[in-house]
Amino acid sequence: MDTVTVSRETAAPPPVVHAAALLWMAAVAFGAFEAVLMITRLLLEGTATLVELLPQAGFRLAVLAGAIFLALRLRRGHNWARWTLAATLGVFGTLSLVMEPIQWLLDGGSVTGAMAGLDAWGWAFALSRTLHVLAVLGAVVLMFQPRANAYYASA
C-alpha cells in the first residue's frame, strides 16, 4: 500500500491556528468598519473632501488586503506569515490603534469624561476599536501556542 504524504498546505491547521486566522479576519473587518465610520463622518461633517481622504483610504485598504493575504498564508502553515503578522500588525498595528487614547489619558483625559461625551458614532467606533484590539491580541497569542509552534515547525 502506498503512503500518501499530505503537505502542510493541504492539511487542516490545528484549531489554534484556525482560530488565529479567524481573529485576524475579524480584526480586518473591524478595521474596515472603523475606516468607513471615520470617512463617512468626516464627509458628512464637511471637515474633509473625498479627494483629501483618498490617500489615507488607499493606505488602509492596502494594509487590510495585506492582512487578509497574511492570515490566509498563516492558516496554510507559512511561518514567515506568522512572524510578519506578529511584527507588523501585532506590534506596530496595535501601537497605532492605542497610541492616541494612551496619549490622551497621559495628558489628563478621563475615561468617564470621554464616555459621557460620546454620540452614537463615537460609541460604534469605540466598541469596534476595542474589539479590533482584542482580536489582534488574541490572534497573536494563539499564533504562538504550543500546537501552533508544532504546526509551523513541521514545515
Rank of each mutant, 00 (worst) to 15 (best):
T47P: 01
P14F: 05
A148W: 11
R147F: 01
A32L: 05
A19S: 14
P146H: 04
A116V: 01
L97Q: 03
W83Y: 12
A153L: 04
F69D: 00
R76V: 08
H78C: 03
V91D: 02
L131D: 05
T47R: 05
A62I: 02
L97T: 11
M115A: 14
L53A: 07
A12V: 14
R82S: 10
L22H: 15
A87R: 13
V91T: 15
M1T: 05
R8M: 06
L134E: 02
Q145W: 11
V63P: 00
L23K: 00
L44K: 15
T112F: 03
A71D: 12
A126H: 12
M143N: 03
A114Q: 13
L64I: 14
L137I: 11
N79E: 09
G138P: 01
R82N: 07
S128W: 00
F33A: 06
A81Y: 12
A26D: 14
V91Q: 13
F69Q: 06
A11W: 12
V63Y: 12
A57T: 15
L22W: 12
L53E: 02
T112I: 03
V17D: 01
R129Q: 15
L97M: 13
A139D: 06
L23F: 09
N79K: 05
G31W: 00
V140N: 08
L42I: 08
V4Q: 15
T84V: 11
G113A: 10
A81G: 03
D119C: 06
Y151C: 06
F125V: 01
L105I: 07
P146D: 00
R82G: 04
F92W: 08
A27G: 11
H132M: 08
A67V: 11
S7E: 15
A48L: 09
A65M: 11
V133S: 06
G113S: 11
V111Q: 05
A65S: 14
A71K: 02
A81N: 09
V4F: 15
Y151I: 08
A67K: 05
E100K: 04
Q56L: 14
V63S: 06
S110N: 04
F125A: 02
A62G: 07
L131W: 05
V6Q: 13
H132E: 01
L134S: 06
S110M: 08
V36K: 01
T88E: 07
R60A: 14
A148H: 03
A21I: 11
L23M: 02
